[in-house]
Simulated assay, not measured.
Amino acid sequence: MEQPAAPRIHVQALGEAFQAGADQWAERLNLPLQVDDAEFALQLGEQGLQLQQLGPEAPGPVRVDFVEGGAAHRRLYGGGSGQMIAKAVGVAQGVRPRVLDATAGLGKDAFVLASLGCEMSLIERQPLIGALLEDGLARAGDDFEVAPIVARMRLLKGNSIEVMRDWQGEPPQVIYLDPMFPHREKTALVKKEMRLFRPLVGDDPDAPALLEAALALASHRVVVKRPRKAPCIAGPKPSHALDGKSSRYDIYPKKALKP
């Protein structure tokens, strides 16, 4: 199956004060500063780095914000270690595993786990989304309350499968995967993040290879987040799953996590 053509993207400063920073991002990501028929703009302004789809039907911009909005609400009122993701990765009394989130996206799940005390490594292979994540982590590091949380989040660059296969040093105890699920027209991709990610990221046809690499590296368990009714990733079967309203966590244990 042919991959769709890569979307046309340019970098844009939202004001003169941000031009030098925009120039640096353009150089780092090897993107132009002006394209007449661009489909996306990576914009730098007062609120940091954001990705804006262009065109009349486009949703608003997407940025990584660990300080305000949804991340703050979930940090303050989100149910703590009772959250399903916490149970899935093995957070328990006296247990805060070292976790690798190998499909980090905008870092929301990793931030939840870091806020509960887990040491997190994050890999995001799409360079634009990795840039948003890097910018969001840097801005969060300037916030008094959030800085200690993002200090537990380490961003790694590259293709997750290759990074896992070439891992150096102590392996993560838990590896967390949330691969892009193949698009079905019936499912309404309501979230603007998903509308934005789909043309940039596409599906994850290599999810089985991702799972295989994770199972080879993790010392204690692998956790895969799936839409609730979706099939398991091809390969070994999970031992059990935790079901939520719209998604579930497939759990592949290797050995027990102990305090």
Rank of each mutant, 00 (worst) to 15 (best):
P238L: 06
L200I: 10
V190S: 12
C118D: 04
D101H: 08
A102P: 02
V223P: 03
I9N: 02
M164C: 07
P179R: 12
G235S: 09
R198Q: 14
P4H: 08
R28T: 05
D65C: 02
Q83T: 10
Q83W: 15
M120S: 05
N30M: 08
G90Q: 03
G70F: 11
A209K: 15
R139M: 12
I161R: 06
E39Q: 11
P61R: 06
L100S: 07
Q126N: 15
P148E: 07
G15N: 08
A188E: 08
G21Q: 11
P253D: 01
P171G: 08
D65H: 00
A234W: 00
Q50A: 12
L215A: 00
P238W: 05
P171Q: 09
G15T: 10
L132H: 00
S81I: 15
G15W: 11
A71Y: 03
D36V: 03
V222M: 11
R8W: 10
P199E: 08
Q19A: 10
G202R: 03
R248N: 06
E170W: 01
P208F: 12
A86Q: 02
D142K: 14
A6M: 14
G130V: 06
R195G: 06
H183M: 03
Q24N: 09
A26I: 01
G94L: 04
G15L: 10
Q83K: 12
V150C: 03
E170A: 14
F40Y: 10
E134L: 13
E39H: 04
Q52P: 00
E16K: 14
V163Q: 09
G158P: 03
A216C: 05
Y249T: 06
P32K: 09
R98P: 04
P227V: 04
D36T: 13
A41Y: 01
I149D: 02
L113E: 00
F18P: 00
D37S: 13
G79Q: 05
R28N: 08
S115A: 13
R28V: 05
A131E: 06
G244D: 14
D243M: 06
Q173D: 01
L210S: 03
A151T: 03
A114L: 15
V223G: 12
L33N: 01
G169E: 07
L42N: 00
E119D: 15
A214P: 00
G90A: 02
K192I: 11
G105E: 07
D243P: 00
K229M: 09
L49A: 05
Q34G: 09
C232D: 13
I175N: 10
R198F: 10
K186Q: 09
A20S: 12
T103N: 11
G69Q: 11
A58R: 04
G55D: 00
S115F: 01
G90R: 01
R154M: 04
R96D: 03
L33Q: 04
A38V: 04
L113V: 09
R195Y: 13
Q173S: 01
L29Q: 06
A114W: 12
N30V: 09
L106Y: 04
A218T: 02
D243G: 06
